[in-house]
Design a protein around this nucleic acid. Structure first.
Lengths: 257, 257
DNA sequence: CTAGTGCACTGGTCGGACCAGTAGGCTACG
DNA sequence: CGTAGCCTACTGGTCCGACCAGTGCACTAG
């Protein structure tokens, strides 16, 4: 005989309930970025828990990048606008724990950047095109200024493309993965002896990409973007991993070592 | 005159220092998954802080998915193997906060799945090919069993492809984004009146993709994979967003509404 | 009217206490 | 002698009360 079927109850920690409530309030828009939560001492009243519990909940919310709290603030914790920081932290930690190789990261960038260019070629606005042009201009100026300025302009170009793709997810992932890759190779790029030649070649490549985006030739833009990325980073990727990168290029046999 | 230049000191919370230390121990491999941290009462001794501070640090580590703690455990918190849970939480939260549309998510899946197939076509092993074949087999059987079984088999196929791509990052992102998409449309897919026809068509499409992967034709596999994804989800994406999805297909004009 | 000083907040940290679980040793019973 | 059961020594979860170091604002003294 089967009476009422009982299900195992899952004990839910008090601080988790608080996290849920606040999280939901933020996601539903009841709390919008810039607004402030009540102070911890107020919250302990509202939730009927101790301050320790409130604080543990706030720590979790803070770790997820949803709020920020500073001592001395006249109000409680501030609700933050979304930032990919938390995402980036998880992914950077993943990269270290899982031992993500530079090759995999670059490959992923090739995928994302290629697709972003494909979409940008078809969906870009005139203003976005101008931003890309301006970024290349800055890259040109920065050749003599040093690696940091060049890199910043380069980043601006790829960001403009990502925005033009019209897909926020692509935009965010581009940003996250790029920052990880740059963190891994920045010093090596900055110290490269043939730095200036590298920069000039990179600028030429970017111009080709831009031309394809301007002409609306998505597949070409994607192909060139992947090629640009490959040329720029392949030297830093262990030779054993390069074939996997070349698999994303369209004439893998035509690519010299 | 310029004496020694002083830099503003950034006050670092005690619990953050603890998080850093433990995080670094895990990432460096000094603590490996399955091992256990000392108990909270031990840690407060080792770090010379109060238990509250230790606990806040542990909450952060737990929120990042690095450790788990259960009451009654004879030892301290358990170090977890990496899981994309934290990543998924950040991204799911992002999807809600930023108002990521279903269109963007599906578009992202088209990008990832397409690239995964492109790579898989060139890098797959025979065993991975067999896994994909088996997954399609299960999809076929599941047509009569119901949506859940079918969906599970479908997921298995895409996972096999992602694994065959050889890129862990692609693998993880595929998993994360898919779970979000399925969460958004699962009920609608399950309740579709023409469900069985949808399933059969989907199987046919998967077979075509598999054939291309088997033959090593990466670009074809990628194109078919994107098309398969589009056909499966386009009906649930607002009409206004569909053109952006079709921009990823190769003959956008040939795609009927 | 302004410059300066407090005061009334904020979060960060501490220490101690109690509860509710669990695991494993110990005891008492068969 | 073996085992079923209890009991203790842990664990984390929660609460309380306290103190400190910042911050912002109102109020006061010049």
């Amino acid at each position: 005989m089967s009476g009422p079927r009982f299900e195992p109850v899952r004990t839910v920690r008090a601080y988790e309930r608080i996290v849920e409530q606040v999280e939901q309030a933020i996601e539903s828009g009841a709390l919008s970025p810039g607004q402030r939560l009540p102070s911890e001492r107020d919250l302990m009243g509202q939730f009927s828990v101790s301050r320790s519990t409130v604080r543990e909940a706030l720590r979790v919310l803070q770790a997820r990048g949803l709020v920020r709290s500073r001592p001395g603030d006249p109000n409680g914790a501030e609700v933050l606008p979304f930032s990919p920081d938390a995402l980036q932290k998880s992914m950077a930690s993943l990269a270290r724990v899982e031992g993500l190789s530079l090759g995999e990261l670059v490959q992923f960038r090739m995928v994302l950047d290629g697709s972003a260019n494909l979409l940008a070629a078809r969906l870009r606005t005139a203003g976005q095109l101008a931003e890309m042009q301006a970024a290349i201009e800055r890259m040109r100026e920065a050749v003599t200024e040093g690696y940091d300025a060049f890199s910043a302009a380069d980043v601006a170009f790829h960001d403009a493309v990502a925005r033009a793709s019209g897909n926020k997810l692509i935009q965010i992932c581009v940003e996250v993965v790029r920052s990880i890759v740059l963190g891994l190779v920045a010093d090596r790029l900055a110290d490269a002896p043939d730095r200036e030649a590298l920069m000039r070649r990179s600028i030429r490549h970017h111009e080709e990409v831009l031309a394809a985006v301007r002409d609306g030739d998505g597949p070409l833009a994607a192909r060139l973007a992947r090629r640009t990325m490959y040329d720029y980073y392949a030297g830093y990727v262990p030779a054993a991993e390069r074939p996997a990168l070349r698999a994303l290029l369209d004439q893998p046999n035509a690519v010299p070592e």
